[in-house]
Amino acid sequence: MSEVRDDRRYSKEHEWVVQEEGRVRLGITDFAQNELGDVIFVELPEVGKGFHAGEAIGTVESVKSVSDVYTPISGRVVEKNEALEQRPELVNQDPYGEGWLVKIEPTDWDQEANQLLDAAAYRALIGE
């Protein structure tokens, strides 16, 4: 059983986003971290860099696999989770909290967020 939280939206690529104070926090889902196994390395973009929705913004590596992380939201990266440099395992331990990846200043939140899955649709996607 993977945890899916009702307070955020999800991409089909297993990222979550949640809006807070005009910014969007992004991470990977509990299902995704469980599929990956022990995360040993997280590569995140430089703060200030802009991305279009659907672009790869970083990489999460487990012992056995390397996965790109895509942003479902266009915008500029305003903060990244520096703690993951020393403690990538936070992605496994707390994917919706301390294991977040980046904060983005969105350019088109309303439009893009509408196209994302809500918790119920995401639960259906992962078969739960």
Partner: peptide
Amino acid sequence: PLYFQSIL
């Protein structure tokens, strides 16, 4: 088996 619990 790749792992039972976790590789680490």
